[in-house]
Amino acid sequence: MLETIWFVLWGLLWAVYFMLDGFDLGLGALMPALAKNETDKRVIYHAMGPFWDGNEVWLLTAGGVTFAAFPATYAVMFSSLYSALMLLLFALILRGVAFEFRGKVDNPAWRGLWDACLWLGSFLPALLLGVAFANIFMGIPFDAQGVYQGTLFTLLNPYGLLGGVLFVLLFMVHGSLWLAIKSDGELADRAQAMAKRLWPALVIVAVVFLAATWVSTRLWANYLGNIALWVFPLLAVAALFATRLAMARGAWWKAWFASALTIAGCTFFGVAGLYPNLVPSSLDPAFSMTISNSASSPLTLKIMLGVALVMVPVVIAYQAWAYYTFRHKVTEEDLAYEDY
């Protein structure tokens, strides 16, 4: 029971991370396409500035909870995905530093350098997270001892890459919607147009991904066994269409929330299909890391649950307050800060 609760929380943490950091990863990846001049770029930086760091902590927490609640899974998952994770970490480092360093020297080459870092540090994590999770859905080739029998390129199989493209598109739509909310004038127009242009591509990739999931993974077994689970893929599909509907009505906040729900729905679609596995082995299902063979002791899970039940609502409360405080469109006055 405790293991199952933590499995759900594990999925939830990843979903929240994708929902939140998804928009700034997507927006960073789109910046070259959306920004026509220096002012546009600064508006984009400011649209993410107060949020990205708090968002990224959800990744740290998702990683930390994997470590704490399912240490053996953490060991197998992170060592199997070694090179992909290292790339992800370096990319995130460059992104984080780009935010703080870009505006500190008044020189176009300096700013250009950090703009490139922001782009790479946004696009690459979006892609790699998609690749990683698609591979987890499909199963990773590790043996009975949890030793990975592949290379970085093993992960770059068609289904993995499809997952990467799906994540990139999900995050890009999410990011352009965020910019549509946070900006004005031509830039906002471009962001809105971008969201509308990307949406059909996202639908196509999502359909292909669903079909490929049927063929390449064993996720469907749970869905055939339990009809209630269909709520997750249905939620994802419904939210995806609601996103487009809200866009058509010019309701950008609603569109953004619908897009967030789409991301959460997609995550839980995979997670619900995985149960009780956390990371299946593609060599032999018997080697898979499951909630029962990788969970921490009941005492640890209980203490962690206590901490989570008290602290996560508090975290959500003050993060929501911070979002509320900085909810306004980026203004001239904001740009007067020399930080970006």
């Binding site: 500035g49 107060p50 949020f51 760091d53 708090g54 990224e56 902590v57 740290l60 927490t61 930390g64 909870v65 470590f67 704490a68 609640a69 240490p71 053996a72 953490y74 060991a75 921490s296 002791s297 640890t300 203490i303 962690m304 901490v307 989570a308 602290m311 996560v312 975290v315 003050y318 993060q319 911070a322 405080t325």
Partner: peptide
């Protein structure tokens, strides 16, 4: 040692790191 060591790191993130990262931006 993940049963012990991992939980300390996870609690650190929930208890402190969120607070730090959110309020530095504020």
């Amino acid at each position: 040692v993940g049963d012990i060591f991992g939980s300390l790191l996870a609690i650190e993130a929930t208890l402190a790191f969120f607070l730090e990262s959110t309020f530095i931006a504020v």
